[in-house]
């Protein structure tokens, strides 16, 4: 037979029990942990070294952030339900939940934009003080990750059907890996919310 194609894309490798995609996404999430870890250590070092550090709730709008937290948690749930729908071979239910997740992402970014708008209108900028600077960098970078996840979901919403019909198992793995990434983004926000807004 001609040269072999790359294996273990769909079926896991017997001795490691994992597919290529799953190890790949978990390695990527490990590097993301280090990325946000570095930003958190920047936050802690700046806060410890600062003479004055504003209380989160005095400067930021907690209630918008609370809504955002709920939105992101809901999107995590709809994401995992979208994956479960595929396990039940129900593509239409999957598409509905994936669209819902995408919508939640959109709402999240919308609320973020409103929040940033409020800050800029009260002329609170990153250069005002280090609390706002690290706030903008952390939430900005997190927002970009949300956007990245949404672009991938949009791709699947528009072109996923052909892949599902031809190679259902590969498509399920892809959705699971996208889900892992999305849950990680939600996980980062779960830490961001108290650290920036409540303490």
């Amino acid at each position: 037979m001609s040269t072999a194609e790359i294996q273990y894309i769909e079926t896991p490798r017997p001795d490691t029990g994992l597919t290529n995609g799953k190890i790949g996404i978990w390695l990527f999430l490990a590097s993301e942990v280090m990325l946000f870890g570095a930003l958190f250590s920047a936050y802690v070092l700046l806060r410890v070294g600062a003479e004055t550090w504003p209380m989160g709730r005095d400067v930021l709008n907690i209630w918008l952030a609370l809504v955002n937290t709920v939105v992101l948690i809901t999107s995590s749930v709809t994401m995992v339900l979208a994956w479960a729908a595929l396990m039940k071979n129900n593509y239409s239910e999957h598409k509905k939940f994936l669209a819902l997740t995408f919508l939640c992402g959109l709402i999240f970014l919308g609320i973020k934009a409103v929040e940033y708008g409020q800050k800029f209108s009260h002329d609170l900028f990153p250069s005002t003080n280090n609390f706002l600077a690290i706030y903008f960098v952390l939430t900005g970078l997190h927002g970009l990750h949300v956007l990245g996840g949404m672009i991938v979901m949009l791709y699947f919403l528009l072109f996923g059907r052909k892949n599902w019909v031809e190679r259902p198992k590969m498509y399920t793995n892809r959705i699971e890996n996208t889900g892992l990434y999305w849950h990680f983004v939600d996980l980062v926000w779960i830490f961001l919310f108290p650290v920036l807004y409540l303490l």
Partner: peptide
């Protein structure tokens, strides 16, 4: 990744006048 984070912080320091 930590250097990428530090690079983003220094980029903000240079462009957005933050004071990390």
């Amino acid at each position: 990744p930590p250097l990428e984070a530090a690079g983003v912080l220094q980029l903000m320091d240079r462009i957005a006048d933050t004071n990390f």
